[in-house]
Design a protein around this nucleic acid. Structure first.
Lengths: 169, 169
DNA sequence: TCGGTTGGCTAGCGATGCTAGGATCCGTCG
DNA sequence: CGACGGATCCTAGCATCGCTAGCCAACCGA
């Protein structure tokens, strides 16, 4: 529903109608609308982790694996904008960063770490993974908001990854 | 008001009370609440452009200029989260990317281009500027949402910029 | 003096997230 | 067998949101 018409048109009333229950039933299963969005977000993180793993393990050369994984990440953000929004843009009452992150997110982050480990050089892998993920996230969100030149997505991705790989030597 | 309590508590009623007029008066000056936010956003873009220019022109060495500018960008995002949100996260009815972007935003983007021109090597400067800006944007928003390890901001920035600079040779 | 314009107001509409309180079912126990 | 108690679900409604209709008073040129 969010994917089709945006989160702003996902109301608790429409949601209740969709599942063929009345509105208050939602509140006996979730604390509020935010909790529903958070549940969808965690679900999406699992899906993203799977896509990243698939893209990464499909290639043997480390550089190719990273490029495939990064492309898969941007594809996911482009094709599932509402889901991506719930996961990484909207304010969610899910804890991050420290150890209490949702497991699927840690898994997705682990894919970045795995892909970057052979390319890290002397760099700290976790920091490198955060930077790579953050950079992709920025490109994804700015592109979605039409704040970047359309049609140059591939050039941007290539430039970014070339720099990240070159930074290790 | 947004900076103090977040955009969700900025209502047209409170806004009207603050300016000591009644609610409908707002709608004779702005098309709607979105237009008010957009006006604030454009204002912020001008401020950001000034900060970037100041940081960039304060250093002579190209690499130092870029580092100072990037740090200024992240400082701005950290210290003015609501303003930054209006500018780059919330959906705004301002056109971007093509020539019709608001002038202050083009100016801010021009600061990136100017700082990166001496460091581009053979790379396309506009693409490089988009990637740099996008990467900083991603790190800023993820850090603000507590989705990155706290305390490692400097390490991330250093790693990113080192990579971007190294990618030109 | 008068009529139009301007600029402000009160009141209210539809929709939102969320909650209070009552009804209905169903297994359990006296 | 029949009353009780806990689920489970509903209708109705609250406060608040962005936004608008319609009115009123002051001003200003003819």
């Amino acid at each position: 529903m969010a994917e089709a018409e945006g989160w702003e048109s996902v109301t608790t009333r429409r949601l209740a109608e969709r599942v063929e229950y009345s509105q208050p039933v939602l509140y006996s299963h979730f604390k509020g609308k935010d909790a529903i969005v958070a549940a969808v977000a965690v679900d999406g993180m699992g899906e993203l982790a799977g896509l990243l793993r698939e893209a990464r393990t499909g290639r043997s050369a480390p550089e190719e694996a990273l490029r495939a994984m990064a492309a898969a990440y941007l594809d996911f953000a482009r094709e599932r904008p509402a889901l991506y929004d719930a996961m990484f843009v909207q304010q969610i009452d899910v804890t991050f960063g420290t150890g209490e992150s949702p497991a699927p997110l840690r898994e997705a982050f682990g894919e970045f770490v795995s892909a970057l480990k052979p390319l890290a050089g002397g760099r700290d892998v976790e920091t490198l993974a955060e930077v790579t993920w953050g950079s992709l996230h920025g490109l994804a969100t700015l592109a979605r908001g039409r704040r970047l030149r359309p049609g140059h997505g591939d050039a941007r991705l290539d430039l970014l990854l070339t720099a990240i790989i070159a930074g290790g030597s």
